[in-house]
Amino acid sequence: MDFAPLTHDPVVDVNRAEELDRDLVVIPDGGVGLVPNVGVIGGSHSVLVVETGLGPRNAERLLTFATEYARGRRLYLTTTHFHPEHAFGAQVFAGAATYLVNRAQAEDLAGRGPGYLEMFRGLGAPVARALDGVELVAPDVVYAEHHDLDLGGRVVRLRATGRAHSRGDQVVLVPDAGVLFTGDLVEAGQFSIFPWFPPHDVDVSGLGWIEVMHRLIATDPRVVVPGHGAVAGPGVLADVRDYLELLLDETWARRDSAMSEETIAAEVEALMVQRHPEWTGRDWISRGVGCFCAEHG
């Protein structure tokens, strides 16, 4: 990954926890790079934690918070996808929580996890420190595509979306609260993260991602918790869909004219930045162009 090394500590700050609904809180990322938005969702007899943070120390903070929040209720853990800041603290929950994900994500973790661990360790000393001591653990429960988790008076829907940001993306829907956790299928105020690193990782699918966004919009949530960025209303789903569709159209229009991928990326990036000058993560635009070029029919 040819990105500038991280110079800050990617710490999940449990003191920032905010209540979104009855017995449902989010620990926001605070605008800190490589910190995900974390969810803690309660029912009468169980509590579900969504995401672990980057590495064991963040997971320890979250487990302590979740244990205190649960007050004796059973703990579950799930992750929206296998990438390090979302899932590489799961070992800390072993024995304290039941860890469950979809089959494709479990396969991602087993197959891609070690490579991503090494790649992320190269992103700067703070990241390497956060990942010190990481052990990749297998989930306790693996489902195929759909799993309804009964927390007691509240059923949480875990849904594998199919290949998009990764092969094993999962969303978490809390129907009675109208809250949708999307992982990195959605970012607020940021260009979509395309982990397109040929030949090492080409699992992302821009075309699949667009299809997923249409399906998520149809769920009509009240609140959307993105992978990174501020908690938002349902309009953020349309923002991501529209960006991805424009990225596709502008990339393929230039691909049809036999322009080089480098030229396409430069032109499309300039256009996207003009459209969304306030968004961060501009480095991801060219990755998205590369992905869509590869998917050009």
Rank of each mutant, 00 (worst) to 15 (best):
M1E: 11
L6R: 13
V14H: 01
N15R: 14
D23E: 15
V26W: 01
I27K: 02
V32D: 00
N37R: 07
S46P: 05
L48T: 07
L48E: 03
G53M: 08
G55Y: 08
T67K: 07
Y69Q: 03
R73K: 15
Y76P: 04
H83M: 03
E85T: 13
A87M: 02
A87S: 13
G89K: 00
Q91S: 06
V92P: 07
G95R: 04
A97K: 01
Y99D: 02
N102K: 06
A106C: 03
E107A: 14
G115L: 11
M119A: 15
F120Y: 15
G124M: 09
A125H: 10
A130D: 10
L136N: 10
L136V: 10
V141G: 01
H147E: 11
D148V: 09
D150Y: 09
L158T: 07
L158A: 04
G162L: 02
G162H: 08
D169F: 08
Q170I: 13
V171S: 01
P175R: 01
G178W: 09
L180N: 11
F181R: 00
G183R: 04
G183Y: 06
E187S: 06
G189P: 07
F191Q: 09
F191G: 08
S192H: 12
F194N: 04
F194K: 02
W196S: 09
D201N: 13
V202Y: 00
G206N: 05
L207V: 13
V212R: 06
H214F: 13
L216N: 07
R222F: 04
V225Q: 10
P226I: 09
V236F: 05
V236R: 06
A238E: 14
D239W: 09
L244G: 07
L247E: 09
W252C: 02
A253D: 14
D256Y: 12
S260E: 10
S260T: 15
E262P: 04
A266T: 11
A270W: 10
A270L: 12
E278H: 14
W279D: 08
F292L: 12
E295K: 01
